[in-house]
Simulated assay, not measured.
Amino acid sequence: MPADEADGLVRAVRAGLAELGDPVKAPEMRRYMKSEMPFRGVPTPARRRLARRVFAEHPLPDRDSLVAAALRLWREAEFREERYVAIDLTGHRPYARWQEANLLPLYEELIVSGAWWDYVDEIAIRRVGPLLRAEPDRLRPVMRRWAVDEDRWRRRAAVICQVASNQETDLELLAETIEATIGDHDFFLRKGIGWALRAYSKTDPDWVGAFVAAHPALSPLSVREALKYVPWPPA
């Protein structure tokens, strides 16, 4: 990607965030997210409006340029909103045609280096999930590996990536990813398991009820989340 294309986009993002930043809100946002990286103090709606404008003014010519721009925003970020914009960029609608399994290494880096729920959940559900539905043969083996990885954020991503899949949910994979981490005491994993089951319960509550009944090792947190919309105990 020509340097001026990347530079123009990155400079415009940084300048826009600086202009929109609120020094009063910034520390409050940082405390809420328990973030080591500071915030500019830009609310989400304003950030998204800025991103749409900047992306329209600085179009990228191909997938490689998208990856390069996103990684530059991510790796060089001084404020958390810059990383949010990097994620926004990967989901920019005109670039949907580039959403293929070849982008998975990018998303894996963002998940592992981001290592917090605000990054991981968006990437897992809005980026990895659609790739899984589009290219299941390529993504299933990766999700199975992530589900048993030492990194808890890869594991959470494997569990929750189908939250928006509804009737397209791969039930065998969902069960495998949950069972792989069912005994872990980590809050984010237990919460993620419950979230994944709760989401699918809106499509098939009977399946979720049967799964919970068959897995007594599920934590109380996971069970409580999973059964929110499921009649319990079963008749």
Results as ranks from 00 to 15, higher is better:
residue 117 W to Q: 06
residue 111 I to K: 08
residue 101 A to Y: 01
residue 20 L to S: 06
residue 185 H to D: 15
residue 50 L to Q: 12
residue 203 T to F: 02
residue 166 N to K: 10
residue 183 G to E: 14
residue 68 A to T: 14
residue 48 R to Q: 15
residue 199 A to W: 00
residue 63 R to C: 09
residue 30 R to Y: 03
residue 209 G to P: 05
residue 77 A to V: 03
residue 148 V to C: 09
residue 101 A to R: 05
residue 184 D to N: 13
residue 95 Y to W: 05
residue 119 Y to Q: 06
residue 22 D to I: 06
residue 75 R to M: 04
residue 120 V to P: 08
residue 102 N to Q: 14
residue 112 V to A: 12
residue 68 A to I: 02
residue 215 H to C: 07
residue 27 P to F: 10
residue 221 L to M: 11
residue 142 V to G: 09
residue 191 K to H: 15
residue 100 E to P: 02
residue 11 R to L: 14
residue 95 Y to A: 04
residue 61 P to A: 15
residue 168 E to L: 06
residue 23 P to I: 10
residue 183 G to K: 13
residue 84 Y to K: 10
residue 131 L to F: 12
residue 7 D to L: 11
residue 35 S to D: 06
residue 48 R to K: 15
residue 120 V to A: 02
residue 125 I to Q: 11
residue 91 G to P: 12
residue 146 W to K: 07
residue 130 P to I: 04
residue 235 A to N: 06
residue 101 A to V: 11
residue 227 L to S: 02
residue 71 L to S: 07
residue 144 R to Q: 13
residue 67 V to W: 01
residue 54 V to C: 07
residue 210 A to K: 11
residue 150 E to W: 00
residue 230 V to D: 09
residue 149 D to W: 00
residue 1 M to N: 02
residue 224 R to C: 07
residue 93 R to W: 11
residue 21 G to D: 00
residue 203 T to E: 10
residue 153 W to L: 03
residue 7 D to Y: 04
residue 160 I to G: 11
residue 171 L to T: 10
residue 70 A to M: 11
residue 123 I to T: 12
residue 234 P to E: 13
residue 212 V to D: 03
residue 184 D to E: 15
residue 44 T to K: 08
residue 9 L to Q: 05
residue 17 L to R: 12
residue 47 R to K: 12
residue 84 Y to V: 11
residue 110 L to Q: 11
residue 59 P to H: 02
residue 163 V to Y: 09
residue 83 R to S: 02
residue 191 K to Y: 14
residue 59 P to S: 04
residue 90 T to I: 06
residue 1 M to Q: 04
residue 96 A to P: 02
residue 50 L to A: 08
residue 28 E to Y: 05
residue 139 L to S: 01
residue 217 A to W: 07
residue 131 L to R: 12
residue 209 G to M: 03
residue 234 P to G: 12
residue 55 F to E: 04
residue 84 Y to F: 15
residue 119 Y to D: 09
residue 104 L to H: 10
residue 196 A to Q: 07
residue 118 D to P: 07
residue 235 A to E: 12
residue 103 L to G: 10
residue 117 W to E: 05
residue 51 A to P: 02
residue 105 P to R: 07
residue 137 D to T: 08
residue 99 Q to E: 14
residue 71 L to T: 07
residue 139 L to P: 06
residue 102 N to F: 08
residue 81 E to L: 06
residue 203 T to V: 09
residue 125 I to Y: 00
residue 187 F to V: 08
residue 224 R to K: 15
